[in-house]
Structures are given as C-alpha cells and as structure tokens.
C-alpha cells in the first residue's frame, strides 16, 4: 500500500510539475530526462533482464529520429507520424541486427552491436540523398511552448515503464531472465532462446526508436553525429541503466534523472559558478562514477537502495 501511495504521489508531482515550474530551462532538462527514462528502460529490458548487453542503442535511437525527419523532408508529412513509425522502423532494423548479432554471445554480442551503431552512423553520414548527410535535418517545431512536449514525454516514459513491467511479470519475463542466467540451461528447458532474445530486442528497439522520433520532434534538428553518437547515446544508455540499477523496473528512471542532472551540471560548468574548463571534465567524472557504482553499488541506486539507506543512516548515528 505504501508503495502504491508513493507512486500516486510521484504521478501527481509529475503531472503538476510544469504548472508550478514554468522555467523553460528546467522544463527542458526534465523533458530530456524523461526521454532518457524511455531509452534506459528499453536498454535495461535487453541488457539488464535478458543479459544481452548492447553497446549500440544509438542505432535504434538514430533510426527513429531519422524516420521522423525523413517523413518531413522526403514524404512531406508531419513528423508526428514518425512517433508511430520511428519505433516500427527501429524494430525492423532490430530484426536484422538480431538475426546477425544473436549468433554471438556475451562480449562478442556487445562488440557486434557497437559496430552496428557505428555502421548506421556512417550510412546516415554518407547517404546524402536520403539523409542530407552532415547537413542534418531541420524541421519546424509544432509547438512553441514546452508544455505539450513535456506531457508527451511523460506519457511515453510511463508507457515504456508500464509495458516493460507487464512483460517482466509474464511468461516472457521468466524466459528473459532464464536466458540471462544460463542460456544452455534455458534451451534444455524448452525455451527457444533465439526467439526470445529477438523478442526482447524488438521491444527494446521499438521504445528506443520511439524516443528517437520524439527527439526529432522536440529538438527539431538532428545530424548523424548527434543521434548516432556512441558517446552521447549508446554509452549514455548504459550509464543510465547501470547507475540507476540494472534489472530493476524503476532503476533506469532514477538513473536517467541522475545522469541528465550530472551532464547538465558539468555542461553548464556548475551553472556558471565554476571555471569554464570544468565543463570539459564530464567524461572523466562519468568514468569515475562508473567505477564507483560498479565497486560499491553493483546493483545501482535502486537495486542497492537498502544498502545506501543503511550506510547513510549509520553515518548519521555515528556523527551524532
């Protein structure tokens, strides 16, 4: 009951937040964080629950973004169609990626997805007839206010968490975790591991593609180096998952807000309070953060929440 109440309060806060905080700057940060909730949750389904660690989620994100963009530049229809089809096209690509990459296991799979992401970045850069290459795609935003985007992002984030929650409570959820724990045992228990790994990948790529399409609509500008970025998308997806907590439903949501908050703190050089060079230090700090999390909070902030509470509590009592 207490948990349900917490979720209801969280939901109410999320809905009234933009009515209270009217600053476009903070609204923008929360919108981006909500987008990362979607990507992080999607990555977590494949990597955290199914155990197939992807280093190439930028590929699905970029495909979704470019689907929405190309709908405008080539088909001359609204980029909002991309919201529906971005995920579907990313899924089709996911089908191909799964067909190729699921022949490999563990680190080899991770490397194959890493290569996949880079391949799509190069395709988007060089296929200028379709993507306009490095010029990128610029569209006109539908809304001048950030409010509609906030609610769309919130709805999508909620949808992705809820769907993944339902999936994990179903037979598929059991199968995904079985595959993560021991693929050979799973196979001998009658689980078609190739099929279920692909199902996990398809759901994951769908939501990531949808987030990409949302990004196109919201930011109104994309180029290959932004949406197919290894650093800013693929690695960020992993960080969101690991920091928040792999194989937990709410982990990526928490991780998204931590990571976007950190990224912005450094990008703005501590909101202008620190010298400008600190904005260059974010890669270093992210690296240290990963080391810290893996050493002390291997299950992430959500997975190790009890541990954090215990330790913080102990520090509190010993100092008093």
């Amino acid at each position: 009951m207490g948990k349900n109440l917490a979720y209801i309060i969280l939901g109410v806060i999320a809905v009234v937040f933009p009515l209270v905080v009217t600053s476009d700057y903070y609204l923008h940060l929360v919108i981006i964080a909500l987008m990362w909730v979607i990507i992080g949750s999607a990555w977590n389904l494949l990597a955290g629950y199914t155990g197939q660690v992807s280093f190439g989620h930028a590929m699905f994100f970029g495909i979704g973004a470019y689907t929405a963009g190309i709908f405008v530049t080539k088909l001359e229809i609204s980029a909002w169609w991309g919201m529906a089809f971005g995920g579907v096209v990313a899924m089709l690509i996911g089908l191909f990626v799964g067909w190729v990459c699921f022949r490999l296991r563990g680190p080899y799979f991770a490397l194959a997805t890493l290569a996949g992401g880079e391949i799509f970045r190069l395709i988007a850069t060089n296929w200028e007839e379709l993507t306009d290459g490095m010029v990128g795609i610029l569209i006109i935003q539908t809304f001048t206010s950030k409010l509609p985007y906030y609610y769309i992002a919130l709805a999508l984030a909620f949808l992705s968490i809820y769907v993944i929650h339902l999936v994990m409570k179903s037979k598929w959820g059991y199968y995904f975790v079985s595959i993560r724990e021991d693929q050979d045992a799973a196979e001998s228990l009658g689980i078609n591991t190739t099929l279920y790994k692909n199902i996990s990948l398809l759901i994951s790529s769908f939501f990531t593609g949808m987030a990409g399409a949302f990004y196109m609509n919201y930011m109104a500008f994309i180029d290959p180096h932004v949406v197919f970025s290894l650093h800013y998308i693929s690695i960020m997806a992993i960080l969101v998952g690991i920091v928040g907590g792999v194989a937990t439903i709410m982990g990526p949501a928490v991780g998204a807000f931590i990571m976007v908050g950190l990224q912005e703190t450094f990008r703005s050089a501590f909101f202008g309070l620190a010298p400008a060079w600190t904005s260059e230090a974010h890669a270093l700090v992210f690296g240290l953060l990963v080391i810290f999390v893996i050493l002390f909070l291997p299950n992430g902030v959500v997975g190790d929440w009890q541990k954090i509470r215990r330790n913080v509590f102990r520090i509190g009592t010993s100092s008093s």
Partner: peptide
C-alpha cells in the same frame, strides 16, 4: 546449471511454462 539469481520457485516455474501458458497455473 541453476538459474542462480532466480528463486527456486521461479526456476521451476520458468520450466513449467514449457507446457502451461498461464502464470498462476505454472
């Protein structure tokens, strides 16, 4: 080859899905 980070019940439930599709029955 136990599915280490699953409970004993979940280990067996996962295999019961081989014949049964409904969670409660499994």
């Amino acid at each position: 080859k136990p599915l280490s980070r699953m409970t004993v019940l979940d280990n067996v439930t996962a295999s019961a899905f081989c014949r049964i599709n409904i969670i409660r029955d499994a």
